[in-house]
């Protein structure tokens, strides 16, 4: 087995992601806007209830929000558009005929698309929300640096795992798109689900206590919530080992069940078109 075709598939999608520079800028404006609204809302809420013992400080909530906003395009919002289109038009047969492992082939494309979209945006937003915001005197609103060197290192490992989890969830959307012959359903379900469960809508630690541990144990928490907690050095029930363990567990589970499901789907798939 050679790894070259998967690298090619990765590089292709990666380049497509970097092609739309204006879209990156547009995304930046949108992310700044949503970030600013959430930040002002949190600030007002925290200042009105100074004696409430919240699980995270206002400063942590702000850093959390900025990182979430910068990794918005890393979330599994729906299937890979190319695969959705191929399922619709019937061009999916070309993918089925390739002498490669279909899971790895699609996974490398999905991962490249997520990273190609997310990394330029994340770097730009980190610069604007971090050092730049501190320079213009918005220090209290800016993105805080990592808690320590170790925290930064752990967060980096965790972010890589998170990106793979996200790509595996995208694979599930891809399979659903191939089954339903349309990408629309995956966007309708995937976007709100990912936005809510990843902590994009509200930081996961701020949900009611009964929901918090459940939310930590679902796969979407592994994409950005766990890495951000490690970055800020927040305590996680069970410690660092549990945090990385949850991520590894979901990565394995999503891959194994997903592969099985994909093979079943492919073996009985009816292709659209002539």
């Amino acid at each position: 087995m050679t790894i070259r075709p998967y690298v090619t598939s990765f590089v292709l999608q990666w380049k497509i992601g970097l092609r739309y520079r204006l879209a990156v800028l547009a995304g930046l404006v949108a992310q700044m806007w949503f970030g600013a609204i959430s930040l002002m809302a949190y600030a007002a809420v925290y200042h009105h209830a100074p004696d409430v013992n919240a699980p995270m400080t206002l400063r942590q909530a702000m850093t959390y929000t900025w990182i979430q906003q910068s990794f918005f395009t890393l979330l599994p919002l729906g299937c890979l558009p190319a695969i959705g289109e191929a399922a619709k038009s019937g061009a999916i047969v070309y993918d089925l005929l390739r002498p490669v492992d279909l899971w790895n082939w699609w996974l490398s494309a999905s991962l490249a698309r997520l990273l190609g979209n997310a990394i330029p945006r994340a770097v730009l937003l980190a610069v604007v929300a971090g050092p730049l915001a501190a320079l213009v005197g918005l220090n209290g609103w800016s993105l805080a640096p990592p808690a320590s060197f170790e925290a930064a290192l752990l967060a980096l490992i965790s972010f890589v795992l998170g990106a793979f989890i996200s790509a595996s969830i995208v694979m599930w959307w891809n399979i659903i798109a191939a089954r339903t012959l349309s990408p629309l359903g995956t966007y309708a379900v995937g976007t709100p689900l990912a936005v809510l469960m990843s902590g994009m809508l509200l930081p996961l630690p701020l949900y009611p206590d009964w929901a918090r541990e459940l939310l930590l144990l679902q796969p979407f928490a592994g994409i950005s919530d766990i890495p951000i907690r490690l970055y800020m050095g927040m305590p996680i029930p069970g410690g660092v080992v549990a945090a990385l363990g949850i991520q590894c567990f979901w990565l394995l589970a999503l891959t194994m069940i997903g592969r099985f499901w994909m093979n079943r789907t492919v073996s009985r798939m009816e292709v659209q078109g002539a």
Binding site: L196, L201, L202
Partner: peptide, 24 residues
């Protein structure tokens, strides 16, 4: 799907309310 998912977004606001007693 539209009904359930948009209702879930109110759950976010409600959680904030639940934790802090009021929203500002």
């Amino acid at each position: 799907g539209n009904f359930v998912t948009t209702l879930l977004s109110f759950f976010g606001i409600w959680s904030l309310f639940h934790r802090f007693g009021s929203i500002a």
